[in-house]
Computed example of a mutant assay.
Amino acid sequence: MDVLTFFQQMVNGFSLGSMYALIAIGYTMVYGVLRLINFAHGDIMMVGAFLGYTFMEVFQLPFTLSILLAVVVSSLLGIFMDKIAYKPLREAPKISLLITAIGISFFLENAFTVFAGGVPRAFPVPSYMENVINVANITFSISSITVPLVTLVLLLGILYVLYKTKYGMAIRALSFDIKTVNLMGIDANLIISIVFALGSALAAVGGLFWAINYPSVEPMMGVLVGLKAFAAAVVGGIGSVTGAVIGGFIIGFTEVVVIAFFPELGGYKDAFAFVFLILVLLFKPTGIMGEDLEKSRF
């Protein structure tokens, strides 16, 4: 493989990794606060993509407005999901929360299969998102540039909220001890709702970008992507927002670059994320950024 092809694959990996990173941040934030692996998170990504499709294709709304509405509705869905399914189980064993998360995941997948059908639908990508820029014989689509930039901006926004606002301070305090936070007069349920809203919004953004780059939507689209994003969160150190982004980029680069070097392994590309996850856990079980999580989360 020549140098030009290598850099082209690096661009592709950067874009793919950004989408994994957006979804992985939601996983890691919910885990950091509740010690819950929210396996319905990947399906929130699917819901966000379907909402964007519906607003554009059915209601004929502009692209930007459709994206904003899809993100807002997905955030509200995350809050509703917490209120209905997780809040009543705050004091229950963690396995109950985990089983509930799996149940919500199945419910969303089957509900959308019943109402939307299981056949993939073409996502209406704006023509300007498909424009191609050529720099030194390396091609960039507008979407492949937009995804990493949006990921960076959202990461900085999340870090600002966590470290520079009172709500962020409350989130970090909540990650250590919910009962103590309640005794200090902080509404823990409100803070948890904010965490679910932020995580669901990021998942929706990731789902919309996925639908733009791989222009179709279908009810099962969030299953494998969600698992890879979870792997990215664990690789980066689950509980660390920065680690989730690093893990997303690593999984994205691994998936793209390995196939570029070994095209004959293209049929096994989905396995690379989990092979890398196993290797990381063998040598660093806490993940790349997970060493000091008991002292400082997020």
Results as ranks from 00 to 15, higher is better:
residue 160 Y to M: 13
residue 198 L to Y: 00
residue 222 G to Q: 07
residue 182 N to H: 13
residue 172 R to Q: 14
residue 158 I to P: 03
residue 281 L to H: 08
residue 265 L to T: 13
residue 208 L to T: 04
residue 125 V to Q: 04
residue 278 I to D: 06
residue 166 K to N: 15
residue 278 I to L: 15
residue 116 A to H: 06
residue 158 I to K: 06
residue 52 G to F: 05
residue 248 G to M: 00
residue 100 T to G: 09
residue 109 E to F: 01
residue 194 I to S: 06
residue 90 R to V: 09
residue 140 F to G: 12
residue 143 S to K: 06
residue 262 F to A: 10
residue 236 G to Q: 11
residue 97 L to A: 13
residue 24 A to F: 09
residue 241 V to P: 05
residue 288 I to P: 11
residue 59 F to K: 06
residue 58 V to R: 14
residue 88 P to C: 03
residue 131 N to D: 15
residue 141 S to M: 10
residue 217 V to G: 04
residue 140 F to E: 12
residue 266 G to F: 02
residue 240 S to R: 06
residue 165 T to L: 13
residue 280 V to Q: 04
residue 34 L to R: 10
residue 149 L to V: 15
residue 241 V to G: 04
residue 6 F to D: 05
residue 285 P to Y: 10
residue 61 L to V: 11
residue 125 V to K: 00
residue 97 L to V: 08
residue 30 V to Y: 06
residue 195 V to Q: 03
residue 274 F to D: 02
residue 124 P to Q: 10
residue 146 T to S: 14
residue 85 A to M: 11
residue 55 F to D: 01
residue 117 G to Y: 08
residue 20 Y to M: 08
residue 201 A to P: 03
residue 209 F to L: 11
residue 238 I to L: 10
residue 177 D to S: 13
residue 108 L to Q: 05
residue 145 I to K: 08
residue 139 T to F: 13
residue 298 F to I: 14
residue 85 A to C: 13
residue 174 L to C: 14
residue 240 S to N: 12
residue 154 L to C: 12
residue 38 N to C: 12
residue 212 I to S: 01
residue 13 G to A: 07
residue 42 G to Y: 05
residue 68 L to Q: 00
residue 35 R to P: 04
residue 72 V to D: 00
